[in-house]
Write a protein that binds this DNA or RNA. Structure first.
Length: 570
DNA sequence: GCCGTTTTCGGCCCGACTGTTTTCAGTCG
């Protein structure tokens, strides 16, 4: 799958054209195409063979030709040509916050600067003073941008950002009187990683609210503090922006700042084509404001159904909203249980009973205890004898507990040779068999795919856990032919997991969507090792919603009876 | 470079903040 690779090339071409001062619309066209290609759930190679590259929105004759050239020859001549004579360092300089293409081009042209290090030295030696538009403040900003880039600049997992947000919102509420307050941006869309946190507040006294915000104890640095916008860096290097708007514009602002950018541009195009204009203050026909207090007013003025934030990525949702054909996304209240938690029998830190009671407190009807299997020594994997004892213990516990059913399960290892870590005689005694790869991540695609396909074909395996093995902040996915895996899972009635652990989210949003298209059922498991981690169901649910899943697609929403039938249990 | 129930040419989202400006450019989201 070369999608990401190609997307990156176009993205880089856009950066280069920007430095060269080329037509901004052409630059945007490249960016738009790059994003669309990066978002594809199907292989571009397949699309090329089907002659349907031009069906990708934003891909026209020119870009399609470039894709074909790259897939056939491994090279893109236009890219090579643009790259020629352009130091790598210039593109790196573009990533310094506050520094854009104009400034990069200026210092390169006039001072021959072509790397971040050279830029830093030049500023410190005062060699940029004579340039137009470069005063002392700007020099200071460049240095700060460089240090900011060095200490952070990375996106953080959603599951790390959410607790930070919750704490800040509490603190702001304590310190000043605010009306409505809501996260916006990628956090509200529940994207798997967050670049910065956006908070939106309805209130009258902007200056006072911004003041309360910029003096929070978490603040490391203040980047901006105006009438309506404050921007800070908190400990750990994360940027948090807060905006204050009047109550009458709150909906418009929430819509606007939630994005995504591509989604908003799409809406604005529709508005413009129909003689309207959208801004964060409302939707207008001429001078007349026709909506803005509520988010729904923006969408309805455009003839669209309200679109859930998780879908706002310009991946086809706008067209569906115009035809009243949006999927009815699965909701929190639909969730009846968790398919994958650990106990202190393996590497969890709480007893089975504690996990069960915590699940009951969350309103669940069932929870599956899926401890590791024998090979996983470092995780305290259960021997055959111990898992039989655990099954007994779970049966006894179910006699005792009311209001929650504990399912006896396992997270059985798929070993490097493709065999499962328990014999069928054990697996057939379990309610839920979750199979997963924990070793041999570097094996070639054919080998890994064969291991996973073997697991899916085993009649006792109900769910394949974290199917790609990626860790968001530290490990790329292993090589697996997902398309083939999904087809086989659909055929055998095996579910694929949405592992909701904050560093996994595996399958991810687009993969979920593709799976559902192919008729695969999904099952969220939090992989919680402690009762305090059960909340991550929220992350798994978000991933499901971002993957456009409906109630029927997700086993967690089904009654236990129906689940048992799907798993072929009596 | 893309795109078309206004268009195959002439458009292509919109506003805040900052800094260095005396009316605006650059950057960001």
């Amino acid at each position: 799958m070369k999608n990401r690779e190609i997307a990156k090339l176009f993205e880089e071409m856009a950066d280069i054209l920007e430095i060269k001062g080329d037509n901004v619309f052409k630059i945007n066209a490249y960016r738009k195409a790059a994003r669309a290609i990066g978002d594809l759930s199907q292989d571009v190679d397949t699309l090329m063979k089907e002659k349907s590259l031009r069906d990708i929105p934003g891909v026209g004759e020119g870009i399609a030709k470039k894709i074909v050239e790259y897939l056939e020859t491994g090279k893109m001549s236009k890219y090579e040509e643009l790259r020629k004579g352009l130091p790598e360092g210039l593109l790196k300089m573009m990533t310094i916050p506050g520094l854009g293409p104009k400034t990069v081009a200026l210092v390169h042209k006039t001072k021959g600067i072509s790397s971040i290090a050279q830029l830093e030295t030049a500023v410190k030696e005062g060699r940029l003073r004579d340039l137009p538009g470069l005063g002392p403040k700007k020099e200071e900003n460049i240095l700060r941008g460089i240090s900011l880039l060095r200490q952070s600049g990375k996106r953080i997992p959603l599951g790390v950002a959410i607790p930070i947000l919750d704490q800040m919102v509490e603190e702001i509420k304590k310190r000043t009187k605010v009306g409505k307050i809501s996260p916006a941006g990628s956090l509200r869309r529940m994207k798997e990683t967050i670049g910065d946190i956006d908070i939106l507040v309805a209130g009258r006294n902007g200056r006072r609210i911004i003041q309360a915000f910029t003096t929070l104890p978490q603040v490391d640095e203040i980047l901006a503090a105006g009438e309506t916008k404050g921007s800070i860096i908190v400990h750990g290097g994360l940027q948090v922006d807060l905006r204050v708007v009047p109550e009458a514009s709150f909906g418009a602002a929430l819509q606007y700042f939630t994005g995504s950018k591509a989604h908003n541009i799409h809406l604005r195009e529709i508005a413009k084509a129909n003689g309207m204009k959208i801004s964060e203050y409302g939707i207008f026909r001429g001078q007349r404001k026709i909506g803005g207090r509520k988010e729904e007013e923006i969408y309805s003025a455009l003839g669209l159904a309200w679109i859930p934030p998780e879908m706002r990525e310009d991946r086809g949702e706008v067209a569906l909203a115009s035809r009243e054909r949006l999927p009815a996304l699965v909701e929190k209240t639909h969730i009846r249980g968790d398919f994958h938690v650990h106990s202190n029998w393996s590497d969890g830190s709480a007893s089975i009973e504690k996990m069960a009671l915590a699940a009951r407190d969350r309103g669940y009807q069932f929870v599956a205890i899926c401890d590791h299997s024998q090979s996983l020594k470092f995780a305290g994997g259960l021997s055959e004898e111990r898992i039989l004892r655990q099954i007994d213990e779970i049966h006894k516990l179910n006699q005792k507990l009311s209001g929650i059913v504990v399912l006896a399960g396992t997270e059985v290892d798929i070993k490097t040779d493709g065999s499962l870590d328990f014999p069928d005689s054990i697996l057939e005694r379990l309610d839920v068999v979750v199979a997963a790869i924990h070793s041999g991540f570097k094996q070639p695609e054919k080998t890994i795919s064969r291991r996973l396909l073997g697991a899916v074909e085993n009649p006792h395996v109900d769910i394949v856990a974290h199917p790609t093995g990626r860790l968001i902040s530290s490990r790329p996915p292993y090589q697996v032919n997902l398309e083939e895996l999904m087809a086989k899972a659909a055929e055998t009635g095996t579910a694929l997991e949405i592992n909701a652990y904050y560093d996994r989210l595996d399958l991810n949003d687009l993969q979920c969507r593709r799976a559902a298209q192919l008729g695969v059922k999904l099952a969220i498991g939090t992989d919680a090792h402690h009762p305090d981690q059960l909340w991550m169901m929220r992350l798994g649910l978000a991933t499901a919603r971002r993957g456009w899943l409906e109630k029927k697609d997700l086993l967690n929403t089904w009654p236990l009876k129906k689940i048992r039938r799907f798993f072929n249990l009596n």
